[in-house]
Amino acid sequence: MPRTSDRVALDDWYAVESAASLSAVPLRTRLLGEAITLLRDANGAALAHDEAGASLAVLESYGLIFVTLGAPTRPLVHIAEAQEQDRRVIPCGWTTIRASGLRLVENFLDMAHFPFVHADILGAEPHTEVVHYPSAIRRDVDEVWATGCRFWQPRAAATDETGTLMEIDYRVTSPFIVMLYRFAPSAPHRRDCIALFIQPLEEALCRAQPVMWLVDAISTHSAMLHFEQVIFRQDRIIVENQRPLTLPLDPRHEIPTRADSSSVAYRRWLKERGLRFGTFEGRGA
């Protein structure tokens, strides 16, 4: 497909590669329908250009390469936890998913699926209730937040042997970047941060990489990585088998309940911003 004409989608920063994967050897990938090429120059600086050879603006941050096809009006998300030197930083690698990246964000925000999709890991029957939590579009910072979300989890982290009532805040900073803050079982005064960076390749095709900044000082790197990868693979089965693959902005054919309020807030925010790429209503645009 050719590059999208959706200005809202174009004027944003997108993670497109891991910084460690970039060298003088050009890498080809796609963003919003456009074929792009990435490489490092002789000085090690990351460069990107589009199919026509035009230079694209590039940022290197959080161990990732970010590119824009347009003119973002906001800086890249600020993640304070990435600055804290004592944290374990776990990049989880890229996975390609045959669904809209927006569906992936919606799935990340959702808790009601924990006892079913992530049975005995992030949730377990009969602890299926999603108690009320506030969701808000914070127009001052132009982000979506769901705060004080509580859910019973049997084993939410690699260090956790028994169940706990987890408390989670969710934060969406761009249509394709979402993160959560979770009180760490081993250090209850600090929060783990897990972010999901999504590279929209096409309307119903994306690549995504979770990156974790964890307080856990006990588990091995590979145990934490494995834990997150299992969960991500389970979520992939879901979003690749939702219909439609793109995110509906009109819920006429769905039945959101109070448990879905973070998804509703997210979709309302996308609608207000005028995004169409990756949505059901934008198909063929």
């Binding site: 009109d250 959101p256 109070r258 509703v264």
Partner: peptide
């Protein structure tokens, strides 16, 4: 309330 908060396109 959830459905109508989102509403039609």
């Amino acid at each position: 309330e959830m459905a109508c908060a989102l509403g039609p396109l």
